[in-house]
Design a protein around this nucleic acid. Structure first.
Length: 490
RNA sequence: GGCGGCAUAGCCAAGUGGCUAAGGCAGCGGUCUGCAAAACCGUUAUUCUCCGGUUCAAAUCCGGAUGCCGCCUCCA
């Protein structure tokens, strides 16, 4: 099956046809570097990371560009408040952004250009817009004239008259039309400024993406992405700016991810419910957040809550348990390649390749990660079942089936970016997070386990159960095996 | 006021014209275990908010109702 993408512009799922054969250019709007990344940024980053990974897995040569806005009113405001330069602010939050993304196993995009590195490109673009007669300068400010771009509103499905009727636009005497937006902004004293044909100033917000996407991906590239809030006005304005100059739409497909709600409410500063990524990562292993995001389709809203993350954690544990079991038994059932492999009566190998195919098909279908994860968990179940119940299965065949399932999991891991840890390392990390979060003490727990071990050796079962109950009350779960007792946090 | 989205089991969530309505969490019964945990097996929606319509056939298409949500202002 070929790739399909829901295109915001047409509001339809469309077959994907790249501009260049077997190559794809993606531009996603990145952050404005004035504050730390929150869970909403994490979602957008994870969504487009999977898009990036899937195209690569499908053999495309992907150029993925994600910009940093490093000059903007909010950055200036923050710099003034702290008495530092906007560069200091931008550097700080870009660094923190990179740390968060690395923790979330979000791959670095191919290119991460910054607005201030492309002021020249922006000025050129604005001059071209002036030449085309769709931009006008008033007293050092340059505006885009929406009336002179007939296609305005095409992405967001609005028309100018309707928007005028809404009348929720700020009044600005300088503008010919209230919906005109700024391309270049005259700088006041003390504000960062660059020389331009219109005097000292700085770029408007939208122009940077038009300039940078064109520079790195060309006049028309494949996919432009971002959060759904960017549809209007940001992306609408980008189209206007780019298309007015080149005569071509800047991107063929527009992808927008849905929002993250917090306990069923909109995340907003006024509600005080902004969850920074770094804060969440103190409470959960990074893959928990990643899995949580991927369990819903990227266009649906997701509702972040303690409970939903806890559920995602249990699901992650389920997957890692299967991988742990696989690792434990790998040596035992290793297929040495000698001798012949008996027939696979139960059809396990066929099932595994079918799951792989279904997984890929799910992602081909507008990046349906939720459906793809279903395949991942079915594979986990198959691994568990083969190891624990198929007693009569010949070792050579078992080894072959498990190796095949392991390879499938590696593919899932590469595309979704979850289940990337060694299972032992994961369980250790997860337990450390839970212990810290619940204020438990590992040494106390281990001391109790030691006492229980002594009781069990004396066959003092009631004492052993007493200790088990005591630990259970703390949320500590014990697992006894021939090798000893291991513990985890429920 | 304008534009758009969503409504599927106790919860989360796929599925958008026709095989048994994925998967996860939670629950229940069984196997295993000194007891547990994990795992496996079985089970939990004759039905997809409601009302009409189209069709041989609809959760899926159309019309209407109700409820919830987003955007239109900086915002992933």
């Amino acid at each position: 099956m070929s790739q399909k993408i829901f295109n915001t512009r047409t509001r339809k799922k469309e077959p994907f046809k790249s501009v260049r054969d077997k190559a794809v250019g993606i531009y996603a709007c990145g952050i404005t570097a004035y504050d730390v990344c929150h869970v909403g940024h994490a979602r957008a980053a994870i969504v487009f990371d999977v898009v990036f990974r899937h195209f690569r897995a499908r053999g495309y040569d992907v150029t993925y560009v994600k910009n940093f806005t490093d000059v903007d009113d909010k950055i200036i405001e923050r710099a003034n408040a702290e008495g530092v330069s906007i560069r200091d602010i931008a550097e700080r939050y870009i660094r923190l952004h990179d740390e968060d993304m690395a923790a979330l196993n979000v791959l670095a995009p191919t290119l991460t250009p910054r607005a201030t590195e492309h002021i020249g490109d922006m000025i050129e673009l604005i001059q071209a817009l002036e030449k085309k007669g769709v931009a006008y300068c008033v007293d050092g400010d340059v505006f885009f004239s929406v009336r002179d771009f007939p296609a305005y509103g095409g992405l967001s499905g609005r028309n100018l008259d309707e928007m005028m009727a809404g009348a929720r636009v700020d009044v600005n005497d300088k503008k010919k039309n209230p919906l005109d937006f700024v391309l270049w902004k005259k700088s006041k004293d003390g504000e960062p400024a660059w020389d331009s044909p219109w005097g000292a100033g700085r770029p408007g917000w939208h122009i940077e993406c038009s300039a940078m996407s064109r520079r790195y991906l060309g006049d028309t590239f494949d996919i432009h992405g971002g959060g759904e809030d960017l549809v209007f006005p940001h992306h609408e304005n980008e189209i206007a700016q780019s298309q007015a100059v080149t005569g071509q739409p800047p991107a063929n497909y527009w992808m927008h991810n849905g929002f993250v709600k917090i306990n069923a409410e909109k995340m907003s500063k006024s509600l005080g419910n902004i969850f920074p990524v770094a804060q969440i990562l103190k409470l959960y292993h990074p893959e928990v957040l990643r899995l949580f995001m991927l369990q819903s389709h990227y266009r649906s809203p997701v509702d972040y809550s303690e409970d939903s993350l806890a559920e995602a954690r249990q699901a992650l544990i389920r997957g890692y348990s299967a991988l742990g079991l696989l690792k434990e038994t790998a040596a035992k059932f290793a297929d040495d390649g000698k001798g012949k492999t008996p027939a696979d009566d139960a059809g396990h190998l066929e099932k595994i390749s079918a799951l792989r195919a279904r997984f890929d098909a799910a992602l081909d279908d507008d990046f349906n990660t939720a459906l793809a994860l279903g395949c991942v968990f079915e594979t986990a179940r198959l691994i568990n079942a083969v190891i624990t119940t198929e007693k009569k299965m010949p070792h050579a065949l078992k080894g072959k089936v498990l190796a095949s399932a392991g390879q499938a999991f590696e593919h899932f891991r590469d595309v979704l970016g979850v289940f990337v840890c060694d299972p032992d390392v994961f369980f250790q990390a997860d337990r450390a997070v839970e212990v810290r979060k619940r204020g438990l003490h590992a040494d106390v727990i281990e001391d109790l386990i030691d006492k229980r071990r002594a009781a069990r050796e004396d066959k003092d079962w009631s004492r052993a159960d007493e200790i088990r109950a005591e630990l259970a009350a703390m949320g500590v779960v014990l697992k006894d095996s021939a090798a000893g007792t291991v513990w985890s946090v429920e």
